[in-house]
Amino acid sequence: MGVLEVDHVNRRLQDNNGQEINVLDDIDFTVNPGEFVSIIGPSGCGKTTLLRLISGLDQPEEGKVTIDGDRITKPDYSRGYVFQHGSLFPWETIEENISVGLKVTKGRHFDKALVKHYIDLMGLTGFENSYPHQVSGGMAQRAALARSIIMKPEILLLDEPMGALDAFTRADIQNVIYRVWEETHTTMILVTHDIDEAVYLSNRIVVMTPRPGRIKEIVDNPLPHPRSRVSEDFATFRHEIQEKLNFGLEDVQEASR
Rank of each mutant, 00 (worst) to 15 (best):
I155H: 13
D196H: 05
I177C: 11
D166Q: 14
P60H: 04
R238L: 02
Y131F: 15
L145E: 11
R257L: 13
M122P: 06
G69R: 05
Y131H: 12
Q174Y: 03
G138L: 13
L157G: 00
G248A: 14
D251M: 11
A143T: 13
G18Y: 11
F83H: 12
S136D: 11
R229A: 07
N17G: 10
V230L: 13
V3P: 00
T105W: 02
Q59T: 10
V206Y: 02
E250S: 05
G44F: 13
A146D: 06
E154T: 10
L50P: 03
K116P: 02
I173Q: 07
A146Q: 10
L88T: 06
F36N: 00
D28A: 04
Y131C: 10
V65F: 07
G34V: 11
G137D: 09
Q134A: 15
K244G: 04
V180C: 07
G123I: 09
S55W: 06
G213D: 00
L102Y: 09
T49A: 06
F168Q: 15
R79F: 02
F234E: 06
T93H: 13
F29P: 04
R214L: 02
S148W: 00
F234V: 04
G18L: 12
Q14K: 15
V23L: 13
I39P: 00
I40H: 06
K103C: 02
V115H: 08
L158H: 06
S43W: 08
L57C: 09
Y118M: 04
